[in-house]
Simulated scan of single mutants.
Amino acid sequence: MPKAEQNLPVETVRIDKWLWAARFFKTRSIAKSAIEGGKVHFDGERVKVSKEVRVGMELTIQQGFEKKTVIIKAISNMRGPAPIAQQLYEETEVSLAKRELLASQRKLHNLARPDHRPSKKDRRQISRFKQENDQQFDQHWSYNDD
């Protein structure tokens, strides 16, 4: 295909090619695998790789923990720089709010867990603490044959 024909505006393009051009996935084969794996939906239904996308369609795309709902604003079959790729779609307000809420919940969950293994000093303190509690328990609770 000559270079001049590639730059012409298009009205429809395959969904795997659009997802790649919009930089949701690094390669078309990864986009294809995600579509086949049920990670991309249109109107609540799974789509096929050959699905043609048009301006105004609403897609739900799941990538790892994140689930995005986007509205297609423009069609492109060429991958460009990230700022231009972000102009191809708009994420819905509900989707943004939900993703921010889930991200903050994951962050809080990670704060509740220690971020390192106990050091040798920490293990000695834990061991000492357990021994003291066992001794106190044994002193207060003893079996009596009265």
Rank of each mutant, 00 (worst) to 15 (best):
L108G: 00
E52Y: 07
K73D: 06
K73A: 08
R23N: 12
G56M: 02
W141Q: 09
N133D: 08
P83F: 10
K67Q: 10
S104G: 09
V55D: 01
T92D: 10
R128L: 10
I15N: 03
K32R: 15
L19N: 01
R106C: 07
E11L: 15
N77W: 06
L108H: 11
K121W: 09
R123V: 13
K17H: 01
Q136C: 13
M57V: 13
Q125C: 09
D138H: 13
I84H: 14
K121S: 12
E93H: 12
S29P: 04
H109V: 09
H140Q: 15
K98G: 07
L101I: 12
H41V: 08
K68N: 02
E58A: 03
D134Y: 15
D16N: 03
D134R: 15
W20A: 01
I126L: 06
D115Q: 09
G56W: 05
S76F: 02
L19P: 04
G37S: 07
R28A: 05
I15S: 00
D43W: 00
Y89A: 08
K98V: 11
D122V: 06
I61R: 02
A21S: 04
R117Y: 09
L102Q: 14
V10E: 03
I75H: 10
F137Y: 07
Q62C: 14
V94Q: 14
Q62Y: 06
R124M: 05
K3L: 10
I75E: 10
R14Y: 01
P114I: 08
R124Y: 11
K130N: 12
G64N: 10
S29R: 09
R28Q: 06
K17A: 04
S95W: 00
S50P: 06
P81D: 09
E58C: 06
D138Y: 11
R23S: 11
A22H: 00
H140K: 14
Q86D: 03
P118S: 01
A103T: 06
E52D: 08
R23I: 11
S142I: 12
S33D: 07
A4E: 15
F65K: 14
I72S: 04
I75F: 03
K26E: 00
H41W: 12
R54L: 01
V94G: 10
P81I: 12
E100C: 07
K98I: 11
K3S: 07
V40E: 05
D146G: 11
N133A: 15
G56Q: 08
Q105D: 03
L96K: 09
G44K: 08
S104N: 13
R123H: 11
Q6I: 14
R14H: 02
R79A: 05
V10P: 01
E93V: 14
E52S: 15
F42L: 15
S76V: 04
P81W: 07
